[in-house]
Structure formats: structure tokens, C-alpha cells
Simulated scan of single mutants.
Amino acid sequence: MLRWILRVVWLALSAMVAIWVCEGLFGVDQSESLLPFLSDRETGIIVVGVFWGISTIGMSLADAFPPRSRARRSSRTRIAIGEIIETRRTGLTVNDVPQYDVYLQVSPADGASFVSVHRGLLDAMSAVAAQPGSVLPVRYDPAHTDAVDIADSEAPEVRTAILDWRVAKGLIRPDLVGARTRGIAHPANVLRVRPTGTHREGNVELDLALLVTPDNGQAQREVETTVFLRPEALDRVQVGSPVFAMWEPGRPDKVAMTIMREEPTR
């Protein structure tokens, strides 16, 4: 309701400004106006201009923070992975940072996927990274899937949810789930890389050979494993790249590879 009132006020004030401009350009008697309060032209138009500016800002804020958005945001507790479909600028800018609508294909670990949108401010670096095909964790409300929030990928519960999603989607081999969830990370280097030709959920499967240097002082050893990676991460897993190998105590034959050092989640 407030947004409609602001729109009506803004349109009325815009019409007054248009009348003032036309009278200034084409009016014969500049001392008279169709609008009585614009007879004192300087004072009248200043007042109209101030209120026009206030109503413009009010409409922008109303569009940026729609009704019930705060209440709905607090109910977005479920975590899923979203793949960016498209990004569009809304036209609003706050402190020179533009606002975007980011449309995503959201894939919960335990349900059907759906299309949703996140509206937020993105600086230049974030806008460049928000390209179609990129994935990021989101929070959503199963009862209202029309909008989502971007989740903090460093939060422990988000990292766990991402891992559970990868397991559910088959992006971690069943025999490597224990290594990935309960294993200890050790430094390693990539010796060989071979794509298998398998693609899943936008990820590429690789067969890897790693040279592992255990943290416990044991001798280096060569291991083989399989991993699914996003195409944009492939340049970080080339021959010679530093990575990490994870395995459970007593199960050094089952090794999972990670680009960053990960901690056990179970």
C-alpha cells in the first residue's frame, strides 16, 4: 500500500514539475501559473522539487525492501546450492554500489530444484564473479521459494550442508564419503590428471594421481583418487598444483582430494 501511495505522490509531483518547465519555456505571462502555489515560481518549485526527491528515494527504498521481506528472511533456514542463471541490474544504486537481481536454479539435497531470485548489492568484483553457471550456497524457506539469501560459505553449518549436497548428488564417490567427512588432510601435489568424460551437476570428473607428504612424518607416497570439480576450478588442479589428500585413520587406501585444507565434519 505504501509503495502505491508513493507512486501516486511521485506522479503528481512529476506532473507539477513538467507544468513548471512548460510554462517557463512557452508561457507568455511568467507571473501566472496553472498551479496557484507556483505563482511564486522560485519558492514553489523548490518545495515541489524537495518533495519530488523525497518521494523518489522513498520509492527506491520501498522497492529494495518489499513488505514482509525481513520476516521471510528470518525463516530462510534451509541451505542448498544455487546455480546462477542470469543477473540483472534493478536500477537502484546505494553509495555507488548497484543492486542486482540474481536468478538461480536452486537444487536442495532432498527435494526438487526450483528457480528463485536473490536481490542485493554487488560491487564490481562480485558482479564479475556472478556469471551464469557459477554456483553458490543459498538459504531458503521451503514455504516461500520465490526469493533466497546468499549463505556465508565459511559458516560451519553451510560447509556441512554443501558437503551433504555433494554426497547426495553423487559428486563424492560412496567409498570416499568417510575420507571426506572424517578424514585428516595432508599436503599433496598433483602428479597426473585425466578427465574421465563424465559430467554431473555441472561438474567434471577427473582421475588424479597425487604425491602425498603426510603431516605425521611418514614417507611420501603416491595415491590415486577421483574428484568432481567445477570447470572454473580446473586451473587449480594441474600437474604440480598443491592440494590436500584426506583419509581416515587406518584407511590410507581411500583418499579424497580437496583444493583447500578441510576439517572433518563428522
Results as ranks from 00 to 15, higher is better:
170 G>N: 01
226 T>G: 14
152 D>Q: 06
162 I>L: 12
186 H>G: 09
158 V>S: 11
209 A>V: 09
204 V>F: 00
241 S>W: 13
232 E>N: 07
266 R>T: 12
192 R>Y: 11
165 W>I: 03
187 P>S: 10
156 P>E: 03
199 H>M: 15
234 L>G: 11
239 V>W: 01
142 P>D: 01
132 P>S: 00
186 H>C: 00
130 A>Q: 11
169 K>G: 10
157 E>S: 12
122 L>H: 07
201 E>W: 08
243 V>Y: 02
149 D>S: 14
154 E>G: 14
203 N>E: 13
244 F>W: 11
179 A>E: 13
236 R>G: 12
266 R>E: 15
248 E>P: 02
192 R>I: 03
239 V>E: 12
126 S>C: 03
140 Y>R: 13
128 V>G: 02
172 I>V: 13
153 S>G: 09
128 V>S: 05
167 V>Y: 08
240 G>Y: 04
190 V>L: 05
161 A>L: 06
249 P>A: 14
226 T>K: 05
247 W>V: 07
147 A>V: 15
201 E>G: 03
166 R>H: 05
141 D>V: 05
221 R>G: 07
158 V>M: 06
195 P>M: 02
217 G>D: 10
150 I>C: 06
146 D>Y: 08
128 V>Q: 15
229 L>R: 10
123 D>P: 06
195 P>C: 06
228 F>R: 05
205 E>V: 10
200 R>H: 07
232 E>W: 12
190 V>F: 00
193 V>Y: 00
249 P>E: 15
261 R>F: 11
178 G>Q: 12
217 G>K: 09
190 V>Y: 00
178 G>D: 11
238 Q>I: 10
247 W>K: 00
138 V>A: 08
129 A>Q: 08
123 D>F: 01
166 R>E: 03
250 G>H: 00
173 R>T: 03
265 T>E: 11
265 T>A: 13
252 P>M: 10
213 T>F: 05
238 Q>W: 03
134 S>Q: 06
199 H>L: 15
204 V>M: 07
218 Q>I: 03
234 L>H: 07
130 A>P: 03
203 N>A: 15
145 T>V: 14
240 G>H: 04
222 E>F: 01
179 A>C: 10
262 E>G: 02
161 A>M: 11
122 L>A: 09
230 R>D: 08
229 L>I: 04
206 L>H: 07
189 N>Y: 04
171 L>P: 03
261 R>H: 15
142 P>Q: 07
263 E>Y: 14
168 A>M: 12
195 P>S: 05
233 A>D: 10
156 P>K: 06
183 G>R: 10
139 R>E: 08
249 P>I: 09
259 I>Q: 10
205 E>F: 01
157 E>D: 07
234 L>V: 07
241 S>G: 09
250 G>M: 01
